Amino acid sequence: MPPPLNHPSLELQLLAQTFFVKQFPVDAGVPAAVASGLNAAHETPGIFSITRTREEISIVGEAVGDDGEWKCIKIAGPMEFGLTGVICNFTTPLRDANVPVFAVSTWNTDYVLVPKEKADAAVAALTEDGWKFRENSESSTSA
């Protein structure tokens, strides 16, 4: 299924850095090391997300060096808040290519993490589906 609109805000960027995705029991609270990283975020800006539900705490962040096991594809954004179907259209070719995803949404855009060993397959599947990657995207991944 093609992207919903041919618009620069829907161009993709494969980010160069690697990421971690961690899950903690909700009764464990946010680990002190993670909380201190959040407080230091103004010194090292980057992607860092904590989501707490009644069942769990999920934390996503940039890994140190190449220690992360995930790569991130950013939808350029900012997208109009009322725009619908973007994640569905984006993840359908990834599903068809057997690429698992972990999505993080912000007000402006979406970040979709894929296992780093599947990043090349994700880029190929999205490109074949008609999605456009920005020039400054990583041209090749190092799994």
Rank of each mutant, 00 (worst) to 15 (best):
F20A: 06
E43M: 13
G82R: 15
P45W: 07
K116G: 00
N6E: 15
P93K: 08
G130W: 12
N136I: 12
T141A: 02
F133R: 12
G61V: 01
N136C: 12
L83I: 14
Q13C: 13
I75F: 00
T91R: 04
C72G: 01
F102H: 08
G65T: 13
M79T: 15
A16H: 10
K74W: 08
F81N: 11
F24V: 08
F24H: 13
F19S: 02
A143L: 03
H7Y: 09
S36L: 14
K74N: 07
E11R: 15
C88M: 08
I50V: 15
A97C: 08
I47Q: 03
E135Q: 11
A119K: 07
S105H: 04
T53R: 05
Y111M: 07
A121Y: 09
E55A: 14
V30N: 02
N6S: 14
K71G: 00
K22F: 06
C88W: 09
E62K: 11
P93I: 09
G61M: 02
V123A: 01
A33S: 10
S58Y: 03
A124P: 01
T91D: 02
A40E: 11
A143D: 09
N89Y: 05
A35V: 13
E55M: 06
L83T: 15
R54F: 05
A121H: 08
V114M: 02
A32Y: 00
E56H: 12
V64S: 11
P115Y: 08
G61Y: 06
D66F: 00
L12N: 07
G85A: 13
G65H: 10
N6H: 15
P4M: 05
Q23G: 12
N39Q: 15
I75K: 00
A103K: 08
P100Y: 04
K74M: 12
E69L: 13
E11N: 15
L94H: 03
K118E: 12
L12Y: 14
S139G: 11
A33D: 11
S58N: 12
N108M: 10
I75W: 01
I87W: 02
S105M: 02
S139Q: 12
V30P: 00
Q13P: 00
N108Y: 12
G37F: 03
V60W: 02
S36G: 06
I47H: 07
N6C: 08
V99C: 03
A143F: 02
A121I: 11
L5A: 09
I57C: 04
D120N: 14
N39Y: 10
A143K: 10
N98F: 09
M79V: 15
A124N: 12
K74L: 12
F102L: 04
I73L: 05
T53Q: 02
N6I: 15
I47M: 08
G77T: 07
V86E: 01
V112D: 01
A40S: 11
P3I: 13
A119I: 10
T53V: 09
A119N: 01
F48E: 05
A143H: 09
R95D: 07
P45A: 10
F90R: 14
N6G: 11
P4T: 10
K74P: 07
V26I: 15
V99R: 05
S58L: 11
T53P: 06
S140Y: 03
E138W: 06
D110R: 13
V86L: 05
D110G: 10
P31E: 03
N6Q: 15
S139W: 08
T91W: 04
S49F: 06
E62A: 05
